[in-house]
């Protein structure tokens, strides 16, 4: 779920921070620049793990900053494909389920990765799974007795498998205008999205499998 990435950067230290030990000052500045930000094709930065190498601070023409070339290790959130992680259900809609791990929200389960057969119940605003049902269409599924449905409610903890992650680097670009009126730009894509799956035995809300285990015990 978390990895270490080795990065190299030039970090300026403001003269007011010269009193702080250089290592601490550098870590503070790096955290300020990177923490809680997505690096393209790297992942979501959490915090500095340690500094591997730092050169002598140099003063450039024009400002009083000390510029350090630093090689450091960053703790990065980047679950690898096929990794299994725990996540909370943030919301559900016709297109799938939105997940969250607290510090990162751009995770979702699309319809194709839901356990089959399943359908979206607009009244409950939640997807449900009908294990062992023959019904194929959404209409048939919605006709099923409510007691047999296994709902994926909001706020439930799910075990999910990471299928794919994608990075988008949308340039902001100049504002568009037609006939002098500014056009509302379409919503920007999140810079880092993770696609997850629960279409497998053992995946989905953890309560499903806890209770399944208990039932199996009872039968045995």
């Amino acid at each position: 779920m978390f990895v270490l990435s080795v990065l190299k950067d030039k970090i300026p230290i403001h003269p007011s921070r010269f009193g702080v030990p250089p290592e601490q000052a550098l870590i503070n500045e790096i955290n300020k620049k990177y923490a809680n930000r997505v690096l393209h094709d790297v992942g979501l930065c959490v915090c500095v793990f340690d500094i591997a190498e730092a050169g002598e601070g140099k003063i450039r023409y024009g400002d009083g900053f000390l510029w350090y070339t630093v090689i450091f290790r960053m703790t990065v959130f980047r679950p690898f494909p096929s990794e299994v992680i725990l996540a909370k259900v943030k919301s559900s809609d016709q297109d799938g389920i939105q997940l969250s791990v607290g510090f990162f929200d751009d995770m979702h389960v699309p319809l194709i990765y839901l356990p089959q057969p399943s359908a979206f119940d607009p009244n409950e605003r939640a997807h449900f799974w009908l294990p062992g049902s023959e019904a194929a269409s959404a209409h048939e599924l919605l006709d099923s007795p409510v007691s047999e449905r296994m709902y994926i409610d909001q706020g439930e903890i799910m075990r999910v498998r990471v299928e794919m992650d994608e990075f988008y680097d949308d340039e902001p670009g100049p504002p568009k205008a037609t006939e002098g009126v500014q056009v509302q730009r379409e919503a920007r894509r999140p810079p880092y999205t993770i696609t997850c799956s629960i279409a497998e035995q053992g995946l989905g809300p953890i309560t499903w499998w806890k209770s399944a285990q208990a039932e199996a015990m009872d039968e045995g």
């Binding site: 779920m1 270490l4 990435s5």
Partner: peptide, 20 residues
């Protein structure tokens, strides 16, 4: 900024929790 190695090693959740 330069990425030298985007996946130098894996960290367990416990290690991250201790660090935080």
């Amino acid at each position: 900024m330069e990425v030298i190695n985007s996946r130098a090693s894996l960290l367990s959740n416990y290690e991250v929790l201790t660090l935080l």
